[in-house]
Design a protein around this nucleic acid. Sequence first.
DNA 1: CGTAAAATGACCTATTTAGGTTATTGAGCT
DNA 2: AGCTCAATAACCTAAATAGGTCATTTTACG
Lengths: 210, 210
Amino acid sequence: MPIKVSIIEDHKPFRESLIYIFSSTEGFVLGNAFSSIEEAMESMEYCDLILLDINLPGLSGIEGIPLLKNKFPEVKILILTIFEDDDNIFKAILNGADGYILKKTPPLRLIQAIEDAVMGGSPMSPVIAKKTLDLFKKYAPVKEEEDFGLTDRENEILSCLVNGLNNDDISDKLFISIQTVRNHIKHIYEKLHVHSKSQAVIKAIRQGIF
Amino acid sequence: MPIKVSIIEDHKPFRESLIYIFSSTEGFVLGNAFSSIEEAMESMEYCDLILLDINLPGLSGIEGIPLLKNKFPEVKILILTIFEDDDNIFKAILNGADGYILKKTPPLRLIQAIEDAVMGGSPMSPVIAKKTLDLFKKYAPVKEEEDFGLTDRENEILSCLVNGLNNDDISDKLFISIQTVRNHIKHIYEKLHVHSKSQAVIKAIRQGIF
DNA sequence: CGTAAAATGACCTATTTAGGTTATTGAGCT
DNA sequence: AGCTCAATAACCTAAATAGGTCATTTTACG
């Protein structure tokens, strides 16, 4: 079954060459081609994958991702752009892009990337992957998880704290008395070596104990 | 200039086929081949890239990354493994791997990946890339930075809170009365729409206001 | 069966917070 | 000169929190 690829790209010559590729490559079928998110939202038909430019008139490609995903939940979205700055990469990922390929990618690699994305992978140009990893390192919890020896219940209560609940809320939520909540919290403080709710929450978040 | 590739892989048949590939592919030269980190640390010579297995006798490949990087700062390390679980991916990235490729990758793709890595990219098998992005989304600050309109002083105090200080500490640190600290905190609560120190801290951390 | 750990709950006190009001000073703007 | 905002600081009350001891019940382990 051929892969049906649609294109959202406002630069006409580039759009035309993409159209050419997918009309003439075995295993692929051309879907629709648009030059803006707005047009695509109005008249796009079902397809397997959308090649999406970022710099578009009106809504940007990045803003378009959630809209397109909402209308076609199954479709894969592959960002195809010249931008390789952290901010665009970051936002594309968080908005749900399934891959991020640079326009300078040779056709063979582009074809591979599309196949990978349709198979459930997340192809990225190597430079993009590098920046993604760097961003990852920047935001990932720094240390490896220390084991504070919290019990299941204590973890449950700590997680409530991280969600911003106060003792009363937790008492209601877990159907235990507020005294018990306080008791658990005391034990959590001892084990985490902290002396306040804020500090416990900070330590939990930083250590990746959600 | 050919790319010199060394191999650390304890499974002999697989090691042999890798050796065969790099002895016979144009543009590549075989460096050393070892079956453990310990051996490699002892007698490895300079090379451009190391193909590194994870499951090794003695030190694991992941543990070996920083050691190898320390001895050969310029070398690229490409993880080549059957493991595709979050934990290994996560640790490999944080330890400084330059790429992460699955053993089932066909030779052509492996060759491409090595070239990408040497060029400064971070090639990853699509499945790995997908998991990396999912991990990324999990740990990245969720929303885009809202502007809560905090003043400089309020931001300063919020940052103290995120560092776990209580009002007394802040009062001492900033040389202002505890009343003033409380006043600023009240304003912070109003602007962040929260009602406790924990919630303010949570919101600050999640929003990336450190 | 006894012991240890975990979960539950209570009582006590001192301190900290939260949520108000009010006021003064200085900077910046019109 | 008048206005607003930020920063400073004080006062008040009620509620929440921290830190401590003690006790009961259930569960898990040897």
